[in-house]
């Protein structure tokens, strides 16, 4: 709460320049997401267009759901029969990994104030979590404002990309094949940074091991939730030996 107080005082004195310095710090961190989200958002908008939906479908869905892979799934279901329970279960399963992000951010979002915290949680997709968890915030820039700016930037990229895809999707013809790899590369860099920073690499190796094992045994459609359960179980087992080394 102290944080909030000092912020409003700072805003009072030099709000605009402070706001600008936050945006200047946050924007470069979100550039890879800009490339990736516009590409995937356009692809999603084009996909909805090809299913025969007008542009406001991808616009509203991306703004309300804001979870890329689920939006593709629901786009498909919209053309079928109404199955509310199925939608609910699939949505929970596809997005179950968000629970992990929440656990990792529990302490970092503490004391940020109700609205700011609510916005940060509501907009916490994979990419936003990865940046907000790992980014080094420059000195003099408020961490909470930085994270909020990252969240809003990423959100706007996705919604605008999806909307543009729905509007102009068919007119695009330049060769962007392979651009989606930008998100893979971003996660790879963030993983590399974490690997270099951590004193023990056992969490990383546990993550890889469990993910690979579940992918091999269960296939690409069904491996995520079992992999997450297995990771949690393994880390619970490793708590004693790991506790002193994190």
């Amino acid at each position: 709460m102290d944080n909030e107080g000092s912020n409003s005082q700072q805003d009072f004195h030099g709000g605009n320049s402070r706001c600008l310095s936050v945006l200047k710090a946050a924007f470069p961190a979100t550039l890879p997401v800009f490339a990736g989200f516009w590409f995937l958002g356009l692809a999603y908008g084009i996909y909805m267009h090809s299913l025969g939906f007008p542009f406001w479908y991808p616009m509203c869905m991306s703004a309300l759901i804001f979870a890329g892979s689920l939006e593709f799934v629901i786009a498909n279901m919209l053309s079928g029969a109404f199955a509310p329970l199925q939608v609910l279960l699939i949505s929970l399963l596809v997005n179950a990994r968000h629970v992990f992000y929440g656990i990792a951010m529990l302490d970092r979002f503490r004391g940020l104030g109700f609205w700011r915290k609510t916005a940060l949680i509501a907009g916490m997709c994979d990419e936003t979590f990865a940046i907000n968890y790992s980014a080094k915030v420059p000195q003099g820039v408020d961490k909470g404002s930085f994270m909020l700016a990252v969240t809003l930037f990423n959100y706007s990229y996705w919604v605008s990309g999806a909307t543009l895809g729905g509007l102009f999707g068919n007119a695009l013809s330049f060769n962007t094949r392979g651009l989606e790899f930008v998100l893979t590369a971003m996660f790879t860099v963030i993983f590399t940074q974490q690997w270099l920073k951590d004193r023990s690499r056992i969490p990383e190796l546990t993550g890889f091991g469990c993910a690979f094992l579940c992918l091999l045994c269960l296939g690409p459609q069904n491996f995520m939730v079992p992999a997450m359960l297995l990771i949690t179980l393994m880390l619970a087992f490793l708590r004693k030996p790991l506790s002193g080394r994190l």
Partner: peptide, 21 residues
């Protein structure tokens, strides 16, 4: 236990995200 998970999950989750991609 959650504080412990919060510390060691990110490394594992970033690995999981790379595999997911």
């Amino acid at each position: 236990f959650l504080a412990y998970l919060g510390k060691c999950l990110p490394g594992a989750v970033f690995a999981l995200l790379v595999v997911y991609c």
